[in-house]
Every structure is written in structure tokens, then in C-alpha cells.
């Protein structure tokens, strides 16, 4: 076991190093005093932990506001996508109906359009709907773009839940709805949670649509807010950029590492079909 562990870590080590490298860069740049950004040759060490970088950045980049915006958009779009996906996935896994294959094909096709390609049309539509510059425009679009994936995941998972259980409850005299709520739902909750995490991460990191739809900086989500610190300015304050990136990444990374075992378990149970 020990030998195997060492061997595995040895094989994985190059990848581990490459993965951790950008995080290391982020870390040392974020804490560095500004005067030490451009020493030559560049070094991993620096004279002191400049915590003030974070405080300055928080104020300068309006970080708190962007954080709330990101949370609002990611949570609501995930909830919306789930509300719409669960019945659709249930229908796909339990019923035979006309146009089922066409519907599946349509879902796959919706994945093929990059948001960048559609940005102009989407914008025109949001103008018609009066939703430009509202976070709700992002909620709708993220939900729509995530739905294909969430439906697919939920459906493959639902198919693994034995139908006999529902039937049994049904025969016992429970109504269809009751059997759904009592028998099916509790079994499906883990899968829903896993699927929701996928949706959440996609929304949390999305950039192009947020950049286009949100016009005032009060509505910026985190990726846009951070990007605006880098893009085309006469001056880039790298220590602030990296501090912001770190703060935006850390919570997700922590939650993620805690949840990843559920992710994999969900995938396994979902036994992709």
C-alpha cells in the first residue's frame, strides 16, 4: 500500500505541480508589497505579508457588491434550471412520448452554440424583454444554457432509481403524486444536489454574457469585475488583481473540495446513459 501510494504520487506529481503553480503565483503576488512586483529576477519570496493589499482591493474593486451579484445570479439561475429540469428529466426517464428523440437532439444542439456567437441576438432579445442591465437577464440565460446538462445528468440518474418502488407505493393506494414525493424524491435528492453544483459552478465562472448584459458596474459579477481590473487599462495593479482572484476562488475551492466526493458518487450512480 505504501509502495503503491508513493508510486501514484510520483506519477501524479508533475500534474500536481502544474495545477498548484498558478495558485502559488496568485498567492505570492497578492501578498507582495507593490514595490516588489517588478524585481529581477522574479522571486517567490517577498519581504512582508502585505495584508493591506486585500483591504485596498476590497474597496477599490467594489468586491463585496460583485460577490453578492455573483451569488444572486448563480443561486437563482441554478434554482431555476433545477425547477425546469427535474420534471423534464423525470419525463425523459419514465415516459415514452412522441418527439422524445427530437427533444434530446434539441438539448444537445443547445450545447453547441457558444454564448459568444449568440451574444448579439441575446442582447437584442433582452432589450425587447426590458431585461438589459438586470441580473435577472443573466439568471434566465444561465438557466437556459445549463439546462441541457442538468437534464441529461438528472435523467441518467433518475433511470437508476428502480421504478418498482414507485409502482409498489402506487399499488399500495398512494396517488401518483404522493408516491413521487414519498418514494422518488428522497432517493433523488443527492443527484439533484450534485447536478445543482455543476450548474452553480458554470454560472459562477461565466464571463462573456455577464460582460455584455450588465452595463453598470454596480451589477458586475466577480469575473467581470476582476477582468475590468486587467483589460486595456493604462495601469494594471497586479497585486490587487491577484488578491481579488484569490478571494473569488478560495471559497469555491474550499466548498468544492468538500463536495467533490459527492460529485463523483453522483456521477457513479448516474451511470451515464
Amino acid at each position: 500500500m505504501l509502495k503503491k501510494s508513493l508510486l501514484f504520487w510520483l506519477i501524479l506529481s508533475p500534474l500536481v505541480v502544474v495545477i498548484l503553480f498558478p495558485f502559488g503565483v496568485m498567492f505570492v503576488t497578492a501578498f507582495r508589497p507593490r514595490e516588489e512586483l517588478f524585481t529581477y529576477p522574479p522571486t517567490w519570496t517577498f519581504s512582508e505579508f502585505r495584508w493591506a493589499n486585500f483591504a485596498e482591493m476590497w474597496v477599490k474593486t467594489n468586491f463585496g457588491r460583485a460577490l453578492l451579484n455573483s451569488l444572486y445570479v448563480s443561486v437563482l439561475s441554478t434554482v431555476l434550471a433545477m425547477i425546469l429540469s427535474i420534471p423534464a428529466a423525470y419525463a425523459l426517464s419514465r415516459y415514452r412520448f412522441p418527439g422524445k428523440r427530437a427533444y434530446r437532439t434539441f438539448l444537445l444542439m443547445t450545447q453547441m452554440m457558444s454564448p459568444i456567437v449568440l451574444v448579439l441576438g441575446l442582447f437584442r432579445m433582452m432589450v425587447t424583454l426590458g431585461l438589459v442591465n438586470t441580473l435577472n437577464s443573466l439568471v434566465l440565460t444561465y438557466a437556459a444554457f445549463n439546462m441541457a446538462f442538468t437534464i441529461w445528468m438528472l435523467q441518467s440518474y433518475f433511470s437508476t432509481i428502480p421504478r418498482d418502488l414507485e409502482e409498489a407505493a402506487w399499488i399500495d393506494g398512494a396517488g401518483h403524486l404522493t408516491s413521487l414525493l414519498r418514494v422518488f424524491l428522497p432517493l433523488a435528492v443527492p443527484a439533484m444536489a450534485v447536478t445543482a453544483i455543476f450548474g452553480f459552478i458554470n454560472s459562477w465562472n461565466e464571463f462573456v454574457l455577464a460582460l455584455t448584459m450588465i452595463r453598470s458596474s454596480d451589477g458586475f459579477t466577480l469575473p467581470v469585475q476582476i477582468y475590468s481590473q486587467v483589460a486595456g487599462r493604462y495601469q494594471i495593479e497586479w497585486h490587487h488583481v491577484m488578491a481579488a482572484t484569490m478571494l473569488a476562488t478560495l471559497p469555491v475551492a474550499i466548498v468544492f473540495s468538500w463536495l467533490q466526493r459527492f460529485l463523483i458518487r453522483g456521477m457513479a450512480l448516474g451511470a451515464v446513459k
Binding site: T212, S217, S228, G232, R233
Partner: peptide, 23 residues
């Protein structure tokens, strides 16, 4: 006055979409 601050790199894209969208 409603101020909208846009990063330089995406300014032209933003104005293009705004004009195309009629806003």
C-alpha cells in the same frame, strides 16, 4: 446621471451591442 463604467478592452463591443440592440 447614470454612470456606466466599462473596461477599455470591451468598450467597443459594449457600444456595438448597445447600438445594435437599440439601447
Amino acid at each position: 446621471i447614470n454612470i456606466e463604467v466599462v473596461p477599455w478592452d470591451s468598450l467597443l463591443q459594449r457600444l456595438t451591442t448597445d447600438i445594435a440592440g437599440g439601447t
